[in-house]
Design a binder for these strands. Structure first.
Lengths: 187, 187
DNA sequence: GTCTATAGAGTGATAGAC
DNA sequence: GTCTATCACTCTATAGAC
């Protein structure tokens, strides 16, 4: 018997990719073990609460990543620079649209009821952080709120259509349009 | 024993709502029978190919509805009137964001591989029909294509965020912005 | 040797197909 | 209803770190 040693952060990242590809219901334990090479023993050692705990920790992990990489910079001192970085971070995080938004996907199916607080918190903070940055950059509250909402909606919609059309170019094109719209409003 | 007689179109509509609420994997046969009141016998009579056939016929049904209600009008003689009707049709079909786009939801999880042709066809035709209408209404090909893509992306993104935030107002607000953007471009 | 994390067969429940 | 396959999950033996 060959024993491989895993660290919990690796386990979270590996399982996250399975949920991302298959969805919550589609990611059965057997598919998770097959794709991650983590045994059931390891999985239940790391996540005694089973699938639900896995999904919860993955969402918390994603949320924490966005907080440090995007939301906190947007809430900081240099709004325009943070917004510019947001577009780059978004494009690279979602691999130019080849990677879906796990939290957005969870929002659409029955999983939503189980994780509604986390889903709501993630999108709410994204919109608020961006709206706050736009406000600090000089826009009115109303305009900032509307543009922030529109940007996050556009990102989610572009991810859906990138997947639906199997189009590798639509996400980049869409981000460029959204970025342009914000810059026009700020000038 | 009380026997209820169902027609196949009713069966499709009933099962569609279960898939819409629970997703493809989440909609188990037992949940479908419980929620639709259709027996397993009826379901396998209407859909000998099981769940996969149900989903395929539901998608075809949705697609056909959009073709007659939206795509053909957009491809017709009165582009501006058809575009105006598109916003109303979209708002009422998706019940102001309370109803998800089944085809958009299928695009995000593993279901996508099974139904990729239908998913792609639906979104492709929507964008093409709208772009065609914008072209006939006087826009350049480039501008029409970009605005059409942006509109369909915005609708899908707004549906995701309406669900994610549990916000009944965001969908209407988003449609109004998208409509405004198209009208500005056409003036 | 001791202890902890992993491997993977085994559990009852429930899936979809018929 | 009945079937088999697969589900989420449990459990025990043991590999490997000390």
């Amino acid at each position: 018997m060959v024993r491989t040693v895993f660290e919990k952060p690796d386990a979270i990242a590996l399982v996250a990719e399975v949920f991302r590809e298959l969805g919550y219901e589609g990611a059965s334990m057997s598919k998770i073990t097959a794709r991650t090479k983590l045994s059931k023993g390891s999985l239940y050692h790391f996540f005694p609460g089973g699938k639900e705990q896995m999904a919860a920790e993955i969402m918390a992990h994603i949320d924490a990543w966005f907080v440090t990489e995007m939301f906190e910079p947007l809430e900081g001192e240099k709004p325009r620079a943070a917004i510019a970085r947001m577009w780059e971070t978004t494009d690279s995080y979602f691999r130019s649209g080849r990677r879906v938004c796990l939290i957005g996907a969870f929002a659409l199916d029955e999983t939503r009821d189980r994780f509604s607080a986390a889903i709501r918190g993630y999108f709410h903070r994204w919109i608020e952080a961006l709206a706050g940055a736009l406000l600090k950059a000089g826009l009115s509250g109303t305009k900032a709120r509307a543009l922030a909402e529109e940007a996050v909606i556009g990102i989610q919609g572009a991810l859906t259509l990138a997947r639906a059309l199997g189009d590798e170019t639509i996400f980049g094109r869409s981000l460029a349009r959204l970025k342009q719209r914000l810059e026009t409003a700020l000038d």
